[in-house]
Amino acid sequence: MTKSQIVWLVIVVVGVINYAARLSFIAFFARREMPPLLAEALKHVPAAMLTSIVVPAVVFAAPGHIDFGLANPKFIAAVVAGVVAWHWRNTLLTIGVGMAVLWLVQYLVG
């Protein structure tokens, strides 16, 4: 397969997967009771998946190299932004503060 064919296959297949997941309980299983274990597992899905997306993007100063100090402004920015997000629950504010801290630490350490 060429790159272009893979890209279009991904668009169609993942598009169908995403819509099916969104429709799942709203349409397909609307009249069914959810199995208790599935309900318990699903409850934790957002926290688990979002953590495993966010953490690698902020703890590595370089590939394979973990840094929680000034050499990794992304981690410092993420901690401050995380507190802001926890307290105010506002996406725009979180992004604004996170980017500002990132740029500030980079400028100071620079």
Partner: peptide, 15 residues
């Protein structure tokens, strides 16, 4: 970097 920040804004309030 706005990508992890965007997800962080959804993640942190879950705690």
């Amino acid at each position: 970097f706005v990508v992890p920040l965007c997800f962080l804004s959804l993640l942190a309030p879950l705690l």
